[in-house]
Amino acid sequence: MAGTISRGIKAPIIRQGDDIVKIVADSVLAAATADGFQLQDRDVVCVTEAVVARADGNYASTEDIAADVKTKLGGETIGVVFPILSRNRFAICLRGIAKGAKKVVLMLSYPSDEVGNHLFDMDLLDDSGINPYTDVLTLDAYRNAFGYIKHPFTGVDYVDYYKNLIEEEGAEAEIIFANHPEAIVKFTKNVLCCDIHTRERSKRRILAAGGDKVCTLSEILNESVNGSGFNPSYGLLGSNKATETTVKLFPKNAQEVAEQIQKELIARTGVKVEAMIYGDGAFKDPVGKIWELADPVVGAGYTEGLVGLPNEVKLKYLADNDFADLSGAELEEAIRHRIKAKETDLKGNMVSEGTTPRRLTDLIGSLCDLTSGSGDKGTPIVLVQNYFNNFAN
């Protein structure tokens, strides 16, 4: 009778140099024995990106960041555009950036950052007479309009927090507020675009407005610096604070690890599971307004069976429309038959209206992120079962 099951699986504390593939396989099979379940074909074994990167030792220091920033952006005045407001995600990166510059012009979007962390409430903006689409605010203008406001969840005034971080690393700090990236070129033409999902658009607009040296975070530490970790596709994007002077980067071997996990479990059990390495889930908190996706992608690496979108019919549409005159066993049989006879691509078909048009990796990764959490659950592995089952089978 069970539909989709998302099962958090406990694992040892994983350290640099550990065999992540063996640990995952051992943990899944130990859980199956202890909890009395069996692996089935098309089960999905998911592992959080954090432990994959940790096992691989994919770390970098603020000195490494500073060296790369200085090389690529000149080491004088650097514009830092649209960073998210996060002690975990960006604060240590900012320390490294400031080490590689004499002055940082920090340009924050307002009233919130890209992922929904608010500097202040939208209602204050409505009453301020400020046009967020055009107005560029100095720090004094910002304070006069909105005052000193702390984030409701963290209790931090991120404006002061980021300004102090820059100055602690020996750079001059200037804070401005704007929502169009090209505003930065009036202050400096050497710019680091720190937004995540809109980074290429920001870079293009800054270059078109006269920017000179313009990089995105994905271009910082996209190669090793002095033996540091790196990510060739995402650079500093997806990094997390490790210590006060180091970050753990997004895993560079995620695809390889996902494929090896699948091979290992096939070899041990004969069951063809799918596997994926997942980052932040893609969902929004309706109260805090925070859009969770601070990683560049949800699925960092995944096996071939997870490519694609769901192809589902809407049960309530069938029950209310096509089979409105049926009930009981007759209704259930008619719906089962319709599911079995569904087209291989339902795009544009009314019977699929209201199903979720998102990639399988985004859906399953979001489910796993909610299951494993980000705190002390101790379940960096998630086994998803029955995901590809439906009412007909």
Rank of each mutant, 00 (worst) to 15 (best):
V313I: 15
L360D: 08
N311A: 08
A300Q: 06
A334E: 02
N349P: 03
D320K: 12
K347V: 11
D325N: 14
N321Q: 04
D320H: 03
E312W: 09
E330Q: 13
L306S: 11
V307A: 14
D325F: 11
K340M: 11
P310R: 12
V307C: 06
R359S: 08
G301M: 02
H337I: 04
I364Y: 06
L293P: 06
G348D: 14
L306V: 10
K316I: 03
L309D: 10
R358H: 11
T303C: 07
G305Y: 06
T356K: 11
G348S: 11
G308S: 10
G308Y: 13
M350F: 10
D320Y: 03
D325A: 15
R359L: 11
K314M: 05
Y317R: 09
K316H: 04
R338I: 01
V313M: 14
E332A: 15
E343Q: 15
E343I: 00
D345M: 03
R336N: 10
A294W: 01
G328A: 07
K342Q: 10
E304K: 09
A341V: 02
D325I: 05
S352E: 11
K316E: 09
K347G: 07
G348C: 14
T303F: 04
D345K: 07
N311T: 03
G354Y: 07
D362N: 12
Y302P: 10
N321R: 05
P310N: 12
V298Q: 02
E332S: 14
A329E: 08
L331Y: 06
D320S: 09
P296H: 04
K342M: 13
E333Q: 04
L309M: 13
G354D: 12
E333L: 00
Y302V: 08
H337M: 09
D325T: 14
P296C: 03
L293K: 14
G308H: 11
P296D: 03
A294P: 00
P310S: 14
L331H: 10
K342H: 09
G308K: 10
A319Q: 12
